[in-house]
Every structure is written in C-alpha cells, then in structure tokens.
C-alpha cells in the first residue's frame, strides 16, 4: 500500500477546518500533518512538514492563500478553498488549479483528491503572483511582500522597500539597513508591485521612486541614481528615461 498523502489544511474558521477534517477522515490515503488558523501558520507548517498537499483558504489573516503558495519552495499540490470568488474560480480554471467552493460535498472533495493523486510527481510551475493578480483584479498590486528568513517569515510593506536587485534566482530586497533574499525573479517582482511606485532602472535593479534623491549622468548611456540614504544605483539610458517618466521630470 502506498504511504498516505501528507497534507496540511489552513482556514481561519474553526468550523471550516472541522468540516474538512471530517470529510477527509473517509480518505485513509490522506494524512493531516497540521491544521493552521492563518496564512503565517500555514507557511511555517509547509516549511516544517514539507507536505505534498495543502488545502488553502484564500482570505486568511496575516497571509492569504496565494502568498502561502508563493512561499512554498518544495513542490506542493494545492487545493484552494473559497466561499465565492468569481474571478478566483476563473483563474483556477484557466491554470488548471484544483479548488473547492464552499460548501462542498464529499464527492467533490473525492474528485479533487483523485486529480491531486494523478498529478503528484508531475512537475509543474504555478505562479502564485500571477494567480493572485487574476483572482483579485481589483487589487492588482501587492501591498506587502512575504519573505522566508530561515524558519521564519518576514512581512515587508511594499512602501518600505527601498530597492531590489536580482541575484541569480533570487531578488535581494533592501529595506533600510537590512536586506532579505526572496526566491523570485526580478521581472516577477516588478509585475507584483505598483509601477507608479517601482521602476526598473537596470536589468538587475528595481527602485522605489519615493527614495530617489537625484540622478547623475556618468557616460553617454549610463546614469547613477542616488537614493536618499546615499546608496548609488546604476541605471541604463532606458531605465533613466523610465524613471524620469514616472517622476514626471
């Protein structure tokens, strides 16, 4: 017999958790490793238990379901659970992501589990940030960024971010004197943030326009962007022009 599927479930409502637990009791092929009351707990439980499957409510305190998925580094099958979200369901359908609409039946849960079983071991890339943008078209930009820091998770307000640089498969997020590494491409981060506040000035650098103190031309095609904290960043001609356009100068 196959070992049971290792799963966690996350929902801020006790009743919703107990209902899912009750229905999952009929599936001995699924073992619940953790029940989480908010997104932060879920992200920690995923880091700690490395489950194969996560049932994630979308709207949760601290971190929403998409942010939890974004933080999961190991391959993870996700079943989103949502009460009613027209756009979210459309996004799930479009990206072949499993979901359950509350209230859901035992049969519907069984069908979702069957699909999950078929997909386990099939590598697939799921862009949580893209999903989130499609699911919440009325709030397309992230107000905060969730970053893993060892076993812990740090929340950074987007407005607090000074600039971000790309380093291999990571982005380095600079906040005051501190910096955090997040497993994400700079292009993906750029799409997540509001373009009226964050501008790509270089292939490897995204800057918060609020922090820009002045710009100095170095050569014909390169500029130096000086931030209020005296940090100097390199900008290409294109980046310089983009920054000027956003600053309106």
């Amino acid at each position: 017999m196959k070992p049971p599927l290792r799963a966690i479930l996350a929902d801020d409502e006790p009743l919703a958790r107990s209902y899912l637990r009750e229905l999952l009791a009929a599936h001995p092929d699924v073992a619940i490793l953790a029940e989480c009351r908010n997104g932060l707990e879920a992200a920690r439980a995923i880091a700690q238990h490395r489950p194969e499957l996560a049932f994630l409510d979308i709207e949760m305190p601290k971190l929403d379901g998409f942010e939890v998925l974004d933080l999961a580094e190991a391959p993870l099958a996700v079943v989103f659970v949502t009460a009613f979200d027209h756009y979210a369901v459309r996004a799930f359908e479009a990206h072949a992501v499993d979901y359950l609409q509350k209230p859901f039946s035992a049969e519907r849960l069984a069908a979702a589990l069957q699909r999950v079983q078929q997909r386990i071991g099939v590598p697939r890339v799921l862009d949580a940030n893209l999903l989130r943008r499609e699911a919440f078209p009325d709030r397309p930009f992230a107000q905060r960024l969730a970053v893993k820091n060892g076993a812990d998770i740090v929340l950074i307000e987007a407005a607090d971010l000074d600039y971000a640089t790309s380093e291999d498969d990571y982005v380095n997020l600079h906040v005051g004197a501190k910096s955090w590494l997040k497993h994400q491409s700079l292009a993906s981060l750029e799409q997540t943030l509001d373009p009226r506040h964050f501008v790509r000035i270089h292939r490897t650098c995204l800057v918060n326009v609020e922090r820009v103190a002045r710009m100095e031309q170095e050569t014909r095609d390169t500029w130096t962007v000086v931030l209020r904290g005296r940090t100097e960043l390199r900008a290409t001609r294109q980046g310089y022009l983009r920054l000027r356009a956003v600053l309106g100068v």
Partner: peptide, 18 residues
C-alpha cells in the same frame, strides 16, 4: 454578499455533522 451566504451554508454543512 454571496460570500456571506455561501460561508453561512458552509457552517450549516459543518454543524450538521458535529
């Protein structure tokens, strides 16, 4: 809000069992 209604129905479904 349909959200409210569906959440309430979810609670009913859960309570019927427990």
């Amino acid at each position: 809000r349909p959200h409210f209604l569906f959440n309430a129905l979810q609670s009913v479904a859960a309570l019927i069992g427990s």
